[in-house]
């Protein structure tokens, strides 16, 4: 389900048939992806699916066995590392080093000059209101504070492609929101962001494009809207007061529950675009309290694809299983 191949100018990163074999197991099996420029690209998948391997190959930490990677339409070069920001899931800082010094060092490793790094750091320190931290040792900061510093280190060289692996883990809700706003701000400025996670609520909220990797293979890839549409199940959830009888050939009652002196019924339509017809039929039979189409959440799609279980109900339990 790749995007239009002719439209290569809008693709910043192209992964073509990449495979990776570790000593005993296949970590990536013929994975191809196209990351559109300026979008937030969600890279999803259960633990151990191969997300981290793919990211490490893109960041050139490890080598691929086969396949090609194009960055801005050219084969990926070591120098491109300066244009790719990476926030790993396993992240940390030199504990004994002072905050300012450390950020300066990390920025210079990414190819910034000392002066340029200094100027940018000043702006970030004002923005996050953390000027007094400059001369503090990292170990004297709280974990949340350290995460903020880490984030600054990742984006300081203003990379065109930013790879964030579980960026919100370790943040409290307030700081997570700050970081989320920063991510959206970066996107507005034109940064492309690959966002690897297994937390679906942040995918729904942030991503424009999604790829799902499971058992070392890509099993889904496309824009968020397209995916949601293609996984539309045409299941409706109706809350009503009295029982529903026969609804004809086009509809099938899947299940009815008794909830707080009401009924909750799931109805499957044979094709899409029948909501009005269903409503008509229902109005004649019962009083409707609520009516909605159950659009699959990414959670649903994710679980359906990974476990093969279709679900039209609330999948909270299943989510917990994956978190």
């Amino acid at each position: 389900m790749n995007l239009d191949k002719n439209n290569t100018t809008n693709i910043i990163l192209e992964v073509k048939n990449v495979s990776k074999m570790y000593a005993t197991h296949q970590a990536l099996n013929d994975v191809s992806l196209s990351v559109p420029k300026g979008q937030i690209f969600g890279l999803l998948g259960p633990n151990g699916a191969g997300k981290s391997t793919l990211i490490r190959i893109i960041t050139q930490i490890i080598r691929r066995d086969s396949g090609d990677i194009l960055f801005k339409n050219n084969p990926l070069q070591p120098i491109d590392a300066e244009n790719i920001g990476y926030l790993p899931e396993e992240r940390g800082l030199y504990k004994k080093m002072k905050v300012g010094e450390q950020l300066l060092y990390l920025a210079r490793l990414k190819g910034l000059s000392k002066n340029e790094a200094m100027n940018r750091l000043k702006i970030w320190f004002e923005k996050f209101d953390i000027k007094p931290w400059w001369n503090k040792k990292v170990e004297d900061l709280s974990k949340g504070m350290q995460q903020k510093i880490q984030f600054v280190a990742t984006v300081l060289n203003e990379p065109e492609l930013l790879i964030l692996d579980e960026p919100f883990s370790g943040f409290d809700p307030i700081n997570a929101n700050i970081i989320k706003d920063e991510i959206l701000e970066l996107k507005r400025k034109g940064t492309t962001i690959i966002f690897s996670t297994h937390r679906m609520e942040s995918v729904e909220e942030l991503c424009d494009h999604v790829a799902l990797i499971d058992k070392s293979k890509k099993i889904l890839d496309g824009s968020k809207k397209d995916i949601k549409n293609s996984y539309r199940t045409n299941v409706y959830q109706i809350e009503h007061t009295t029982t529903i009888q026969n609804l004809g050939d086009k509809f099938e009652i899947l299940e009815t529950e008794n909830v707080d002196e009401h009924f909750l019924t799931y109805i499957q339509a044979k094709e899409s675009g029948l909501s009005n017809e269903l409503l008509h039929q229902l109005i004649n039979q019962t009083e409707i309290i609520s009516f909605q189409e159950r659009l699959p959440s990414f959670n649903d799609i994710f679980i359906m694809l990974v476990t093969g279980k279709t679900t039209y109900k609330n999948t909270q339990q299943a989510i917990q299983h994956y978190e």
Partner: peptide
């Protein structure tokens, strides 16, 4: 060992071999 246990290692080797 410090670089490994503080987990800065992956950050560094994404910019340095």
């Amino acid at each position: 060992v410090e670089e490994k246990s503080s987990k800065i290692i992956e950050v560094i080797i994404s910019s340095v071999r």
